[in-house]
Every structure is written in structure tokens, then in C-alpha cells.
Design a protein around this nucleic acid. Structure first.
Lengths: 188, 188
DNA sequence: TATAGTGATGTCAGCAACCGACATCACTGT
DNA sequence: ACAGTGATGTCGGTTGCTGACATCACTATA
């Protein structure tokens, strides 16, 4: 038998998510999270830079997923199409964790500090997407714009997907949002 | 002679901006800001909810400016055009404070915590714009999309305006970004 | 097999952000 | 005069977060 229970990080994440949902983010103290995970506060801060970060673990995975999807797109693909393809490639990650994702979004929606952090994370992903586009030879401005437009499209589709229990297909919502956006920009 | 120097809020804002620039955001303590403004830490927290908020004062003014510009647009104006008109209506606010705005952006660019807050503020403005559009009868989804597209357009134009000392005309950059965005979305 | 790491965790002390409660006292209106 | 008001100060406490050091099962290597 090993010295410690395995998966300390995962236990902290689960404990934090549950406690944030039960009592709210501000009302739960880091000590409580650590205690529920069978660890100490100090150990929590070894795994996570701050109290919010514990909800934002999958970041690196998403980034590599997006970036490699963009790299995999045929050279002839339009910047925006490459971005949309990358977003669609990521949808299974969310669909497979439906309940967990919902719970997480409910917690974030209830707290502005967490919304701040989420926006920073989304901006980082958007920036990584723009970098990937630039590596394909897309101009600076076009890369940023395509990445930002894709980011919004995803955000809006994702929000709808989370708030509508009937809707199963995130990809479909992405395409629907994109169509609407094209209409808006074209001046319909 | 009155009991206290006037404009405590303004003094705190100026002291904070200067100190954040001189030593960096994390390295300056709230007590120091208050001291430079001739006040105490407790008073700082009566004016500003936290250490970051002191950099984000003009929010209400900008919101009413945007919202009334949208309300003033002719009923026949397209949602996106109304948003762009509102953004252009706000450009003088920035152009008149060029140096101050630059200083502020440099401070924010140097610190992720401040970037988080700025994103939250921008999201709040975007949301207010979407509300104003809805009040004109624009559908929910279209309102959000038009507001978000406008918000990105402004952000990109603003970033360029701040980083290029030669460029004077923010409106011109907004129109240029919008044109590029239209090209991207149309699939050029 | 003895011994010297190694790495994940615990302990402790401390700083700085933030907040509630109460005190102060120039100014204001009656 | 005098009670009230509002901006500020004082004080004490909680919580997020960090550096420094201790512990001790496990591992590699002589």
C-alpha cells in the first residue's frame, strides 16, 4: 500500500466543484476543500495557483486539441473554416462530460470572479488559435479576427447547449450560430 | 476651508495608476495608494470594491454613451450598424485622454489579474449593448451576436490605436477592422 | 543490503487584501 | 444652539496565499 491515496489533484477538483455548488464559491474556504479531499490547504495551493484555478484544469488539453485540428486542416481551408472545424473537433470532450460540464457552468454563472477567470482562459485559447493560424501563413489581423469570431460562435453555441436540456448536438448549435453571425455581418 | 481635500476618488485613481506603473500592480500595496492620496486604506475600500477596480471608473459613463447612441439610431438601421455607430460615438472619450488611456493600457497589459477585470467590464458593456438592441426589437440571438461582433471590432481597433503612436483616428481603425472582419466571415 | 536521494505531503509563521463595527467631527438645516 | 449627516479614521478579525523547513515511504545504486 502506497503512502498516499492516488489522484490528489482529481480529488481536490471534485471536492471544490461540489462545495462551490453546495455553498457557493465565496462561502467555501480552501481549508474545507482540502479537508474533504483528505489533504491540507498547503497542498491545495501546490496543485492550483489560486482558489479559482481548480475549476479550470482541462485547459492544456483543449489547447492542443484546437491547435492540432487547425494544423490538420487542408492548406486550402479558409481561416474561419479551419477554426470552426477545430471547435467541432472539440465538441465530444464536452458531450462526454455533460453532467460535469453543466455543474461547472452553473457554479461559474453564479460568481463574477469565476467568470473573469473563464474569460481569461477563453482569451488564451483564442490567442493560441490565432497563433496556429499565423503559422499557416494567415496575416496577423486576419488570424486574430478569425480566432475571435470562432471564439464567440463557440461561446454562444455552448451557452445554449448548456441551458437547453433537450439539445444534444453541440456541433449543430455551432453551425447555427455561425449562420446567424454570417447573416448579421452581411447586413440582413 | 472644508474638512477634507476634495475629489478623494480622483486622487485615489491617480495615485493607483501612477504606482501601478512605477512598481507594478502586485508590488504596490493598497496602503501605499491611500497614503499617496492622503487617505487611509479603509477609505480606499469604501470607494473601490477591490484593488483592481480603481482602474475601471468610467464604466457607467461608457455604458450610457453606448446605449443612448443605439437608441438614437434610426429604426431602419441594421443591428450591427447601430452598434458600430455607438462605438464611433465613444471614440472622442478615448482620443481626448490619449496619454492617460495609454498609461492605463500599459499597466493592464502587464498584469493578468487586470486583464481579467477588463474582460469582465467589456463583457458587461457588450451585454448592455445587446439589451439596447433587444429593446429595438432585435431577436435575442441576433442582439448578442451583433453586440459581440461590435465588441471584438472595437477591441482590435483599440489595441492597434494604443500600440501605434502615429495613428490618431480611432474611428478609422474601427471601420478598417470591420471591413476585414466582413471579409473573413464572407470567406475571402 | 545499507545508504543516500527524491518527491509528495504536512507544519508553521507571516503578509496583504478585504470587511464589520464603531468613533470622530466639520458642516448643514432648523 | 443643537441634533443630524456624511466622509473619514481606528481597530480587530478572517481568508487567500507563500516561503522555509520537516517528514517519511519509496527508489536507485554502490
Amino acid at each position: 500500500m502506497s503512502r498516499w491515496e492516488p489522484n490528489a489533484r482529481g480529488r481536490l477538483e471534485q471536492a471544490a466543484l461540489d462545495l462551490y455548488q453546495e455553498r457557493g464559491f465565496e462561502q467555501t474556504m480552501v481549508t474545507e476543500i482540502a479537508e474533504r479531499a483528505g489533504l491540507t490547504e498547503r497542498t491545495f495551493f501546490r496543485y492550483f495557483a489560486d482558489k479559482r484555478e481548480v475549476l479550470f484544469g482541462g485547459q492544456d488539453m483543449l489547447r492542443t486539441l484546437f491547435v492540432s485540428a487547425i494544423e490538420a486542416a487542408p492548406a486550402s481551408t479558409t481561416p474561419l473554416d479551419a477554426v470552426i472545424a477545430a471547435l467541432e473537433a472539440a465538441t465530444p470532450v464536452f458531450q462526454e462530460r455533460y453532467e460535469r460540464v453543466r455543474q461547472r457552468q452553473a457554479v461559474i454563472a453564479a460568481n463574477p470572479e469565476l467568470q473573469e477567470r473563464e474569460m481569461l482562459k477563453r482569451a488564451a485559447l483564442t490567442s493560441a488559435i490565432a497563433d496556429a493560424l499565423r503559422r499557416r501563413g494567415v496575416s496577423d489581423l486576419a488570424a486574430i479576427l478569425a480566432a475571435e469570431v470562432g471564439s464567440i460562435t463557440f461561446k454562444i453555441a455552448f451557452d445554449r447547449w448548456v441551458s437547453e436540456p433537450d439539445e444534444q448536438d453541440l456541433s449543430r448549435l455551432i453551425r447555427a450560430s455561425l449562420d446567424q453571425l454570417k447573416g448579421i455581418v452581411a447586413g440582413t
